[in-house]
Write a protein that binds this DNA or RNA. Sequence first.
DNA 1: TATGAATGAGCGTTCATTCAT
DNA 2: TATGAATGAACGCTCATTCAT
Lengths: 202, 202, 202, 202
Amino acid sequence: MKTLSPRGEQIVDEAIELLSSGGLPALTTKNLAKAVGVSEPALYRHFKNKMDILTAILNRQEKNMPRLFERMAAQYESPLDQIQNVYARIFHNFSRTPAMAAVVFTEEIFRQESTLSEQMNRIINTVEDRILSLLKSEEGRRECRTDIPPRDLAQMMMGSSRLLVTRWRLGNYAFDLEKEGAQLWKSLRTILAPNLSSGTKR
Amino acid sequence: MKTLSPRGEQIVDEAIELLSSGGLPALTTKNLAKAVGVSEPALYRHFKNKMDILTAILNRQEKNMPRLFERMAAQYESPLDQIQNVYARIFHNFSRTPAMAAVVFTEEIFRQESTLSEQMNRIINTVEDRILSLLKSEEGRRECRTDIPPRDLAQMMMGSSRLLVTRWRLGNYAFDLEKEGAQLWKSLRTILAPNLSSGTKR
Amino acid sequence: MKTLSPRGEQIVDEAIELLSSGGLPALTTKNLAKAVGVSEPALYRHFKNKMDILTAILNRQEKNMPRLFERMAAQYESPLDQIQNVYARIFHNFSRTPAMAAVVFTEEIFRQESTLSEQMNRIINTVEDRILSLLKSEEGRRECRTDIPPRDLAQMMMGSSRLLVTRWRLGNYAFDLEKEGAQLWKSLRTILAPNLSSGTKR
Amino acid sequence: MKTLSPRGEQIVDEAIELLSSGGLPALTTKNLAKAVGVSEPALYRHFKNKMDILTAILNRQEKNMPRLFERMAAQYESPLDQIQNVYARIFHNFSRTPAMAAVVFTEEIFRQESTLSEQMNRIINTVEDRILSLLKSEEGRRECRTDIPPRDLAQMMMGSSRLLVTRWRLGNYAFDLEKEGAQLWKSLRTILAPNLSSGTKR
DNA sequence: TATGAATGAGCGTTCATTCAT
DNA sequence: TATGAATGAACGCTCATTCAT
């Protein structure tokens, strides 16, 4: 979680790029060194070993997600708007740098070491916590139907968004992620809307 | 898609087991041969190379999913019941043999070769097609709300179910997948239910 | 301690040769493979890793020393003759294949792994035990002075013989090890002889 | 042979410590720099390269041995007492700082470069020369039996003493070196004593 | 159908050393 | 006097795959 030198940041950048383009098998020290433009041993001045680099990638993501939520909290009043725009932002970022997409929603990459698995799990849980606290807030309870456990609602938002990104990647980024994401979230918002009738009925 | 010898099937079984326990890095010819109980060259009697084995794994999955849908079609009248029970069945199977879970919902594993990626994509699309045709059927349109594009509904069902499995794996299979899956689908069914009020209102 | 394939034996042979000519730093897998005339990975078909090869070298020595003592026991009646001829034999063998000398009397090589250290220690102790039991035998007590603890006598025989070999190696095998060894043992025998005068005097 | 800066001396100290604890493989520039508490390049301010450091270690030893002999010459009249106390002193020093023991009597460490080998050989020869001149002195010829070539006697003293140290190291410094050394030299002195009978006989 | 032996390519990593600052 | 950053060379070892038997 410590702060990295500029070279260290660059190494993480290129590592993400490699993971994105060829998955874990492409992230060899040789490839990485070449991408960074240094010799292989140079990597070891900045990271203890390869797993240290993978950890740094997850650390970066772990820092980014809360930051994103806070940014949206500053911009939007409505909890659901906040969540929706977090994902809009994610889709936007992925569209511009597909590399990150391959890493962020791709747990399998980090399966090999249990500490990485745990960190991945922690990131997912953190996001869920953010969503849950928004849903459970007073304002959230006004905006969002309450007949469904928030946990399941969060699962639907996160799950469908993630699957969208997965299919975007599998399909070689052929469709417009931002547009499809917006459409998906339009549907999600409709579904999440409180069932007015139940209150108004009669 | 050709049919395999018993040895071939056994090799695929063990390959899935290895993928499950240690991800792709664990699926080495050495590990696989030892797991099967033969020498490494013996593997090459049954498969041209390693990718051929990965393909066989996906082939098996590609055959299983439609079979599962048909089985449920024979058992249940309601389209939504059919879909729900497909996933109930999947959760059940995964609970008993977690190995398969690691493979089926894990696209990253097959990223390295584009032909595998495509096959993976095809499997997802096939499942989506099944769900869509059920949702669009006459009976489906009665059971399920029609104010949301079916594609988005399918994305939610598939996405949330997949994320549930992902988290189950990341959390070392700590929670009861079948029970949590049932709960998730209870919520999904509530959400999918047609908004009766809109029809009844006035 | 298991028996090796012919290739395995050949690898041990060449490993000893390398150790002899350049010490441990010369015993790289690359050098060894080249010396054997195979590729590096081929070594790993016969040994688990490099330390396994070092262990095999010591195993060979551990088997040889007792064998040597028994061979001499069959040839000579006198205990001291047996010991002396064990060393004569060792000097003879080293003269013909100096490689082994570098290894057998060179504990430092095996310092890096404590299990190797222990094995080395065990070999030395085994030799000492053999010598001690010969000295303490009835015939031994007749042949050899008893006013000195046998342990110290053994230390002198072993120590002076080993130092002779060490200096032979350090001096680039410049002198005749067999001849110098014979001279040393002539002196040792004189020293070991029971002080007849004390018994016979007057 | 030049004199070293304080930092240089400290580097040699730590190098000996490293050699002692892990043998030559442990004496890396990285380990050494860390032990000294400086960066790796700093080592090169004080020594041309790694071999230069090894040379400095041997230089220190080469200076120490004659000094030790002279110190004992000042303290003891009897030649044999002088030799015996040189070794007593060595055993004493080793007991307190086992590190040095690993280096002083361990020729193998310096095998890799022939110049180091030669220096090691020179040190041994110097010690032998000291011993020989003491044995051959008038007083020495009175104290020590003359029926054995002095060279062989020296070999026995040096060899058995060295082997004692070797076994002490191999056995993880488990026994009391000073005590065992005293016992060994008691026996050596008995053995070296002139055979009075031969003079008295007849 | 199976295997023991082998290999070229590549892996992550450490080595002693240099250079600019 | 010291260091942060870097490197060419080499390390031990594993990979998927082939071949003779």
